[in-house]
């Protein structure tokens, strides 16, 4: 975890997470999260080179559904939940293809 010790750039990560932070927040979180990251470095004590990672505590396999069409939502309910819509479509600010 050598590179980890450099700590994180809260501003950059917040961008990845699409959350605008105030400078006050950035400063506060930077300190708090550096503490947390320092704390979790205790995991380096452990040699887990040949330990299998656990993604599911109690794994099962091949949970499949038949290819059958079921109920969809009432269109009006979907539109009522949308903050902004036009002609049955959900309106968003113009997407400038990035």
């Amino acid at each position: 975890m050598s590179e980890v010790n450099q700590g994180m750039d809260v501003g950059y990560v917040a961008k990845l997470a699409c959350i605008d932070l105030t400078d006050k927040e950035k400063e506060l979180f930077q300190g708090q999260l550096d503490q947390v990251l320092h704390y979790v470095e205790q995991l380096n004590e452990l040699d887990v080179a040949d330990v299998e990672p656990t993604a599911h505590a109690i794994p099962v396999y091949n949970i499949l559904r038949k290819d059958e069409v079921g109920m969809s939502l009432d269109h009006a309910a979907v539109m009522n939940n949308a903050p902004s819509s036009i002609d049955g479509q959900i309106r968003v600010p113009k997407i400038i293809d990035q």
Partner: peptide
Amino acid sequence: GYYDAYYKKAQKVRTL
């Protein structure tokens, strides 16, 4: 750059 150092490692300790 950090996935293995944190997430992958945490998943392994989860196994322990």
